[in-house]
Design a protein around this nucleic acid. Structure first.
Length: 492
RNA sequence: GCACCGGUGGCGAAGUGGCUAACGCGCAGGUCUGCAAAACCUGUAUACGCGGGUUCGAUCCCCGCCCGGUGCUCCA
């Protein structure tokens, strides 16, 4: 199943094929590590994860490079406020970032590149641009890209800058540029700021140059796919193209993917709006990592997603249904054989599922055949028409669903445990939802003991005691199910 | 202001120029159960923002309008 993916550059669905015929080379803009990641960041990384996982499911080999921006204005400012060098400031946020990625089960890219580890490559690129006449040094020692040297500028974001007045909106501290639209490649050091001594002077890289330098270092002058959030399209990605192609005269990335922003309660998420959430915030409110993952990927990447707590509950309940069904298959006893209707339904579900994802990663459409299959399988089981071969066929479909969505298998305990440990250490226990604390208060062994006591009470027809135990457990988020083949319990 | 995107049942969200417009969640009733839970069945449902146009036929195409959102500046 090939992937037809919307390409910002061409404005249409293009089939994603590795240009070397073997491995898809892709670059995705990663985080700037000045704070904890918020759910908007993670929506982007999650959608890129969906892309990766779908390609892997179809058997494609991938080489995916992600950068970490560990030097920029905000980092310098925050580190200065904290009174520590940036090399001490950023590691904790790098670590937190990967912890959050793991919590959301986002696969690691094949390669992670830090900006501060690639300064010489960036300097080289600036030198090459200068040699090509596309870069110039301003009086203060900063280097700028000369926009007029790249006539194709605007081809990605479809902006026509020809009509823009030069000098209409020049920032006061950018008076040294030849043209207002020229952007910084290298920023001259200001007193006390982090800086590197290099052949092009003492300073630090501009924001855009790191991605050009690292992408070309690891993926070559031309590669298959470049992805990121929609906000990066302009100016960041446009500038990357200008810098890179001015040096190589080759197409930089062939295919560009942009993930739309999410809204929270119908508005853009921002700290001033009071609708700003990090992953940790949500985990401490008691939501499961899997529910957050599902909520953030269920709306296709090219659509705005309106994030709400109702949406998180919906995702929580949908996962519950998936997991309950999965357990029913795994634990159930079925007679040998296959029933043609179920086999056929499983095959059709698998085909529809893959087709939906192949159609520009339509995750919403992809869910439908899975849930349809679950309903018909449940019906067959209830009617005693479900056989062991049917189970195997459906488990295979669920496995390919989980290869991309990754929410059926339950990995939720660890992220919550880590978030609680972090809250304790960071002195933020006040933010933890009381239900979450209650839920953590019983060990599996204690629950097993209570469940056994209840089963005994039931056998003795002491229903008052049995219900009392069930209520006690329910208060701590433990749900009991009396099935034909025994008693099950699960944490809500 | 300029540009782009969206407005589908109670909520979220697919999709299509013509068959009963997916799927999920919620709610109600039923089956099962000591009672529940899970599961299934039924209902919720006269759901395609408004007004024109094209067409044999439009939710889907075109025009206008209203509403919401986003970008044009640091931002996933």
């Amino acid at each position: 199943m090939p992937l037809r993916l919307f390409n910002t550059l061409t404005g249409q669905l293009d089939t994603l094929v590795p240009m070397d015929g073997a491995t898809l080379r892709m670059y995705a803009c990663g985080p700037t590590v000045y704070d904890y990641g918020h759910i908007g960041n993670f929506r982007t990384f999650l959608q890129i994860d969906v892309l990766r996982r779908f390609l892997e499911l179809t058997g494609m080999r991938i080489h995916h490079v992600m950068n970490i921006t560990d030097v920029d204005d905000k980092i310098i400012r925050n580190a200065a406020e904290a009174g520590i060098p940036i090399s001490e400031y950023t590691p904790r946020y790098v670590e937190a970032f990967f912890e959050d990625m793991d919590a959301l089960r986002i696969e690691r890219p094949e390669q992670i590149a830090r900006a501060t580890g690639h300064i010489p490559r960036m300097v080289e690129l600036v030198q090459k641009l200068a040699a090509a006449g596309a870069a110039y040094r301003a009086e203060d020692g900063s280097w700028y890209f000369r926009l007029s040297a790249f006539p194709a500028y605007g081809k990605l974001s479809k902006k026509d800058l020809s009509g823009m007045e030069d000098g209409a909106r020049v920032d006061v501290d950018e008076y040294e540029k030849d043209s207002a639209r020229d952007f910084a490649l290298w920023k001259a050091a200001k007193p006390g700021e982090t800086a590197w001594d290099t052949p092009i002077g003492r300073g630090r890289p501009g924001w855009h140059i790191e991605c050009s330098a690292m992408a070309m270092e690891y993926l070559g002058e031309s590669f298959d796919l470049h992805a990121g959030g929609e906000d990066l399209m302009f100016p960041h990605h446009e500038n990357e193209i200008a810098q890179s192609e001015s040096v190589t005269h080759k197409q930089f990335a062939r295919h560009w993917m942009h993930v739309r922003f999410l809204l929270v309660d119908g508005r853009k998420m921002s700290k001033s709006e009071g609708n700003f959430y990090t992953l940790r915030d949500l985990l401490l409110k008691g939501y499961k990592a899997s529910a957050i993952r599902l909520a953030l990927i269920s709306v296709p990447y090219r659509h705005q997603l309106n994030f709400t707590f109702d949406g998180l509950m919906e995702a929580t309940n949908a996962i519950e249904r998936l997991r309950t069904f999965h357990q029913r298959l795994v634990k159930g006893a079925f007679a040998a054989g296959e029933s043609p209707q179920i086999q056929e339904a499983a095959q059709r579900a698998q085909a529809d599922y893959l087709a939906a994802l192949g159609n520009d990663l339509n995750t919403a459409e992809a869910r439908a055949p899975i849930f349809e299959l679950i309903r018909s399988a449940n019906t067959a089981i209830d009617q005693g028409e479900f056989l062991a071969g049917d189970r195997d066929a459906i488990l295979a479909v669920l496995a390919s669903f989980d290869a991309v969505f990754d929410v059926i298998e339950d990995h939720d305990a660890e992220p919550t445990r880590k978030a609680l440990a972090w809250a304790e250490q960071a002195g933020r226990m006040a933010e933890v939802a009381p239900e979450l604390v209650a839920r953590q208060s019983l060990s599996d062994e204690a629950i097993d003991a209570l469940v056994a006591e209840r089963t005994l009470a039931k056998k003795q027809r002491n229903f008052a005691r049995a219900d009392q135990i069930r209520n006690e457990l329910a208060e701590k988020g433990i749900v009991i199910e009396d099935a034909k083949d025994g008693v099950r319990w699960k944490r809500k």
